[in-house]
Write a protein that binds this DNA or RNA. Structure first.
Lengths: 258, 258
DNA sequence: ACGCTCGCTTCCGTTGAATGGAAACCGTGC
DNA sequence: GCACGGTTTCCATTCAACGGAAGCGAGCGT
């Protein structure tokens, strides 16, 4: 191995290629990938060839690379149980309210959207399946934060609180009070904090150990910001159904370590 | 390198680990992975450690490995355009018919389900997002096959035609006639051929080059097998909307080479 | 039409990351 | 307490990986 990034494993190089699609995807050229990964072009070319042959990546007519469907298929098993459990109820929630419904879990400092039900009618595009948004800027995220352990919440509030819109709450003391209120009242509301024009209401979904494992919410146009709580009972009803289904998970399914 | 699988690259070893989850997932122990991949246990352990540290795999309290959410997030970009384009219309189709709707593309000899809209009401579970079923055993698959090039169709019909249920059509000559009729009438129907208790109707969705790129369909209980064609007009309407949306894709988006 | 540039592809002598058997460790069952 | 099976760690050996150089092809400007 030459001095160029000596000590770097092949696995780490391959994963750095995949990482480049996270940060700069969805379509990247060979040269871009070499630059983003710090690999010489010939090395990148060789590793990309193997990933492409297997189907982890695809290549278009212009020679640009994308994530391949095989990786999509393979990874459907991740989070599938929660998604499959929640989906019918998100669908019911959508049918009852005709508003975009979604469910998120906490991943690090962000809300990760594991599913979402919406239609061609007005869709304030605040979330996307597989997408992430900062906890403090979303209703589902505020719920997840409100029910987290105090040390985590305090560490989060001491971190860098990004203002996603001009309406995002970023004052730590103000957010702490808000989260305490959310824990008391059992729901969170955001008004154009994640995205201009969109407001949201969310409630917690408890897991098997009675800890809050996810949060389910609705997204509406900001014109309906004053009447969000009218959806509370149906949201809570749906959350209860999801919790009951989670409680019915087969025994012995362990919590993830990683 | 020792004689054990000499000449095998690190990348191919890593990919063989991921492949093990395709075929034997979703939860595998270290020893199982070593066996499935043909790697010595210590080699598997080392490579798994790297995949786990990055988030490609997760490990539970019992030390078993699963596909990690990071891979799921990363791979959402694969097929996203078709999924995001089709979803609102699948949702409309579901709202109008209250039946499970799905969309599939052809991947090799199978129908790959890229999206599906369903609810907690009666759901004949024939398909699953990211799942595959043989082309000849599904309505969407028959549509895709009917509009394929003759050489592909003939090669497919000369292959091994699996009987998924006792009702699956597996006679090559009979299937050839059926596919010709499907191409003429513009829709396909299956009656308990993919799964007992479920029947389905599907129509084609043309891509930009007027070739059939996908197929959209409905799944119903087999008790409604005699009245499937009453859904034809709404199915065709939805297919047209999806085609129009595909036609509006930004210019220069190349077909995949892959 | 031609020359230049840039990105991609292929080649191969050199070398250090990867190898995997052995030993140690750990948890479970008897 | 012991045996067993699975997991984890170590390290001497070696060959898969490296990446610079050269070649190729497409696109662009003159």
């Amino acid at each position: 191995m030459r001095a160029n990034e000596s000590g770097r494993s092949v696995t780490s190089r391959v994963l750095s290629i995949l990482e480049a699609f996270e940060t700069h995807g969805p379509s990247l050229s060979l040269s871009q990938l070499a630059e983003l990964t710090g690999l010489p072009v010939s090395t990148a070319h060789r590793l990309l060839g193997e990933l492409h042959a297997w189907g982890a990546l695809a290549r278009d007519d212009q020679g640009r690379y994308h994530v391949g469907l095989r990786l999509w298929e393979l990874s459907q098993s991740a989070g599938r149980r929660l998604r499959d459990t929640a989906r019918p109820y998100l669908q019911d929630l959508f049918s009852l309210t005709q508003e975009t419904s979604h469910i998120a879990i906490r991943e690090g400092n962000e809300a990760l959207y594991v599913d979402r039900v919406y239609s061609s009618k007005r869709v304030p595009r605040a979330s996307r399946i597989g997408g992430r948004l900062p906890l403090h800027a979303t209703a589902v995220g505020k719920v997840l934060l409100a029910y987290e352990e105090p040390w985590f919440r305090e560490a989060y509030l001491h971190g860098d609180l990004e203002a996603r819109t001009v309406r995002t709450h970023v004052d730590p003391a103000g957010l702490a009070d808000e989260l305490a209120q959310i824990a008391e009242q059992g729901y969170a509301i955001t008004l154009e904090e994640a995205r201009a024009g969109a407001c949201s209401i969310a409630v917690p979904v408890a897991g098997r150990s009675d800890q809050v494992e996810a949060s389910v919410g609705l997204v509406l146009l900001s014109t309906q910001g004053k009447t969000l709580t009218r959806h509370l009972s149906v949201l809570r009803g749906v959350a209860s159904r999801i919790e009951a289904a989670i409680a019915r998970y087969p025994s012995g399914y362990p919590r993830q370590r990683g």
